[in-house]
Design a protein around this nucleic acid. Structure first.
Lengths: 146, 146
DNA sequence: TTTATTGCAAAACCTTTGCATGTAT
DNA sequence: ATACATGCAAAGGTTTTGCAATAAA
């Protein structure tokens, strides 16, 4: 793994940091919690403490390398911050996470902020529902949203 | 407080439940965490355990009386579920929460769900930034979002 | 009376922190 | 050599749960 990104971030290129970045690149399509990352490291026989995982992902987030999102009430998930803003669709049945980029949406959000006299810094849009994983899926909620 | 809503929800009209509903009606403009509700009860000399607060708000959420939202990483906040869907604008400086209803936004969200083959159940849109509380506020982030 | 509900304390989680040890520069 | 990172264990904060006591129907 390239230590340059870490030097740019102003932090030392240590083994745990390189290994954790590695895990993110190996699972570039996934959203991982601290525990997920920790499990991955364990399964590669890299003995890195959970506390270090937390410290490193926080530093990488501060450095702009990772992006943190809270998709459920339990824990935050992290992903590489190299794709620009995108929204998340979370399946209530299988937990799968889809992503969506929508320029019109982003514009609309900026407009709302403007109308409310709000200096927009960032935003989070999460859709909850069913991704089609279940044949016997209950009919989508018919009401306010469909 | 009217016990009818509780009977409709299929749960007994007990003192803790009525008192907690009362707190929500007394602070209808606020978003409260379990700890906030608990503090309110304490200050009224209602001795209701924190565990009961958690149990009751979960039941009231299941019954559709309350709405749960996660606006920050620390804890969930609850509000009366009597206003239809709305988005939240959270000030990073003072913590104030503004609300916004935007029909176009809601439509756009439905469209995204449709395009992704997703059976939309609900969604959460949270804007983070500055509400104008600070004279010395740092300039809004100039980048992807402004 | 019968069943649901409460309170308390303990546990379960996720996340952060203090401190002695170890490592990158 | 020096400052920064790590590991471990302990603590912090939020939320859930087991169980005996209590209150609603």
């Amino acid at each position: 793994m390239d230590p340059t990104r870490l030097r740019v971030a102003g932090i030392k290129a240590t083994f745990p940091r390189l290994k954790i970045l590695d895990v993110f690149h190996q699972h570039a399509d996934q959203h991982m919690s601290a525990a997920d990352i920790y499990r991955n490291l364990i399964s590669e026989r890299s003995s890195i403490g959970l506390a270090t995982v937390y410290r490193v992902i926080t530093q990488l987030e501060d450095a702009g390398v990772l992006k943190r999102t809270q998709l459920d009430t339990h824990s935050s998930v992290y992903e590489l911050n190299d794709k620009g803003h995108h929204d998340h669709l979370v399946c209530r049945h299988c937990g799968r996470i889809q992503e969506s980029s929508d320029a019109t949406m982003a514009q609309r959000v900026r407009k709302i902020a403007r109308q409310c006299g709000f200096a927009l810094d960032s935003y989070s849009l999460v859709l909850y529902g069913g991704c089609g994983c279940r044949k016997d899926a209950p009919a989508p909620y018919i009401g306010e949203f469909e």
